[in-house]
Simulated assay, not measured.
Amino acid sequence: MTLLLVVAVANPLAALFGVHVLGMGQISYRFDGTNVVLVIGGALAIVVGLLALRHMDDRKGVPLAADLIAAVRGERFPKGAAEHVPGLFVAFEGGEGSGKTTQSRLLAIWLRDQGYDVVQTREPGATKVGMRLRAILLDAAERGLSARSEALLYAADRAEHVEKVIRPALYRGSIVVTDRYVDSSLAYQGAGRVLDPEDVSKVNAWATGGLVPHLTVLIDTPPEVGLTRLGGAADRIESEPLEFHHRVRKEFRALAAAAPERYLVVDGTLPQETITRQIHDRVREILPDPVPRESEDATGTMPAIRD
């Protein structure tokens, strides 16, 4: 379109502009209609190119330079592409016995019933390496583990989790539902273990490449209630004193209050059916269309979300 426009107006515009000579001391520059046409054509080409990139960019928000550099280096996921993926990322957070594991499982089942490709996962222990780390982190016999070591082990599990499970699923367009993510480290190691929250945040941002969930569901349950729901022997984290769990809950609530547009906070003392309904209502708002756009254009088919 730009080329046709330039061809159509080039000669008339060049003739109307004529020839002008700009003198700068002993130097002169001859500026005629041809120069004007080339300048305008170049400006239009830039505008059309930017509009085309905006419509066809498969990693919206990622700088073009970063994408090109990643392609030259052979990197599959360029830095900065964390939030700009085809899939949907939902994380469940909460204290011990909050019900987040149950609700994450129920959400995954509901989404599969709608026809979505769902990857249900958890932290720690979603990978082979993660299973070994989980055994160390939750073993009640590991009482000598320092707070910093604990934070680094969780970050190591998360780095493996993101690289091997979450990112590949998101890039192929799946919905990822994870039981715990970065907020758990900020709450448990940052507030619970009283580590510098900035340090914990930086370590996990580096471990995940900056990957942030589209939605974080916080099941807010008082520790006095959640801890009574646990069955079997308590693991290393569950056996911490009540004050520890109160600090964890307070930090979870603070994280949600700082970014309310990205969080859904649900009262964990409500009946399970009520909690599930609230989660479904919120997730509906961000679900991708399960029917390809091409199919809609050809048949007029509209997606149907079932209760």
Rank of each mutant, 00 (worst) to 15 (best):
M1Q: 15
L4W: 14
L5D: 13
A8W: 15
V9Y: 14
A15Q: 13
V21W: 07
I27A: 15
Y29V: 15
F31K: 14
V36Q: 04
V37K: 02
V39S: 04
G41I: 01
G42T: 14
G42E: 08
A45I: 09
V47R: 12
G49T: 05
R54L: 12
D57V: 06
D58Y: 12
D58A: 12
D58N: 13
K60Q: 14
G61P: 10
V62A: 00
L64D: 05
D67S: 12
I69C: 09
I69S: 11
V72Y: 05
E75F: 10
F77P: 03
F77R: 03
E83V: 08
V85L: 09
V90A: 04
E93S: 07
G95E: 11
E96Q: 08
G97D: 00
T101M: 02
L107I: 06
A108C: 14
L111N: 09
R112N: 14
G115I: 00
Y116H: 10
T121F: 02
T121N: 04
G125N: 10
V129D: 09
G130P: 02
I136W: 14
I136C: 12
D139W: 10
L145C: 11
S146F: 09
A151H: 02
Y154E: 01
A155F: 07
R158K: 09
R158G: 05
A159L: 03
H161Q: 06
P168Q: 03
S174T: 00
I175L: 08
V176H: 00
S184R: 10
S185M: 04
G190A: 09
A191Q: 05
A191G: 02
D196H: 06
P197I: 01
V200Q: 04
S201L: 13
A205D: 02
A205F: 00
A205N: 03
A207G: 00
G210N: 03
P213E: 01
H214Q: 12
L218K: 00
V225W: 04
R229F: 13
A234S: 10
S239D: 14
L242S: 02
E243Q: 11
H246W: 15
R249W: 04
E251M: 12
R253Y: 01
L255F: 11
E261C: 10
E261W: 09
R262C: 01
V265H: 08
P271C: 02
Q272M: 15
T276D: 07
R282W: 07
I286Q: 01
P288G: 05
V291H: 01
V291N: 00
S295R: 11
D297M: 13
A298F: 14
T301L: 15
M302K: 13
A304E: 11
I305W: 07
